[in-house]
């Protein structure tokens, strides 16, 4: 038997075999109690996040749904300054899923969680009838701790602050969409999916003057900048000439009628920081793998309020609005 059957989710012997053969070795499920019991630190605030992953296809250039599920949740914790400690993982598997594919997904979750130092301590599995799912869906919940003295939010943004982006944009969304639409690139275009907690550690260790950080996933850089503009009440002014977009990504965007500013990223963060520290911080970020292509993209100004303004290469202006209803394939 090499595929998931409905009875693997039935609560009986087959389900126990599935858990013992696949999930227990991949994760740290030392006891099969329904709730994990873990050690805790006394100081700091708790950060808690949950996210579901339905990306199609679930293997894509540069990653898979498992890698995405761990990185996505770890990154959500990292963006509020939390050190990720524990995670849970819930799986919804479609009848007929090959075990070999499940194994590959679990292996990549195991590998990246060990690299990050986050422990996957509890999980759940359900099986749905063939046709009722899309192979594999994963929900991850993460818990982390925010050390004292760290408080990040858009309300702390001040006019004059600088906007930093940690790398070239649009890679994840385009890698997934290109895979779906059968477009190939030479050299291949790969997703940027990666954990950002190491980069964030380094940034917080470098300066105290970071106002806010966020990873521009669904909706892309445009949406995150709008969240900053709305949250702070100021204008985020970004210069087209500074924004890094790989030429293959730009080409694919032109072909598919997309704007890279709205395309999802899974290994990029945007930070707003005090102007005095911006250049040094970018230099420090570039010493890390995740931040090797970091750049200053623009600054915060007073007017027009609640707005993202884009200074084009030609010297013109354009508004970068929230995404409104453009249909994109599932990419996260």
């Amino acid at each position: 038997m090499d595929r998931i059957q409905l009875s693997h989710g039935g609560g009986g012997r087959l389900m126990h075999c599935l858990i013992n053969d696949f999930f227990v070795p991949a994760f740290e499920m030392s006891s099969l109690n329904d709730a994990a019991v873990v050690a805790w630190q006394a100081s700091g605030r708790i950060a808690l996040t949950t996210d579901s992953y339905v990306v199609s296809p679930y293997f894509f250039p540069g990653g898979d749904i498992g890698l995405l599920a761990v990185c996505g949740t770890v990154n959500d914790l990292a963006m509020v300054g939390a050190k990720p400690l524990y995670m849970t993982a819930g799986f919804i598997l479609e009848e007929g899923l090959p075990f070999e594919e499940l194994e590959r997904v679990l292996a990549s979750m195991q590998r990246v969680s060990e690299d990050i130092g986050v422990r996957i301590v509890a999980g759940d599995t359900k099986v749905v009838e063939k046709g009722k799912g899309d192979g594999i869906y994963i929900n991850t919940t993460g818990v982390g701790i925010i050390p004292g003295g760290i408080s990040l939010s858009p309300q702390q943004i001040q006019p004059g602050d600088k906007v930093i982006i940690s790398g070239s944009i649009g890679n994840h969304g385009i890698a997934v969409m290109a895979e779906r639409s059968g477009i190939s690139f030479d050299p291949p275009l790969v997703s940027d999916v990666c954990p950002l907690n190491g980069l964030v550690d380094h940034m917080l260790g470098t300066t105290k003057d970071i106002r806010v950080m966020r990873d521009p996933t669904r909706g892309g850089v445009a949406t995150t900048l709008n969240e900053f503009a709305i949250g702070s009440g100021y204008c985020m002014t970004v210069y087209e000439e500074t924004v890094k977009v790989r030429s293959a990504v730009q080409g694919a965007c032109d072909l598919l009628g997309l704007d890279p500013l709205y395309v999802a990223n899974e290994g990029v963060l945007i930070a707003v920081v005090a102007p005095a520290v911006a250049e040094d911080l970018v230099a420090e970020m570039r010493k890390t793998t995740a931040g090797a292509d970091a750049f200053i993209a623009g600054e915060v100004t007073n007017s027009p309020p609640h707005t993202v303004l884009y200074k084009t290469l030609m010297g013109g202006n354009r508004i970068i609005d929230m995404l409104s209803g453009e249909q994109l394939p599932r990419i996260c």
Partner: peptide, 9 residues
């Protein structure tokens, strides 16, 4: 024309 901000120019 909008994306490049050409009207401004």
């Amino acid at each position: 024309i909008f994306r490049h901000g050409i009207r401004d120019l």
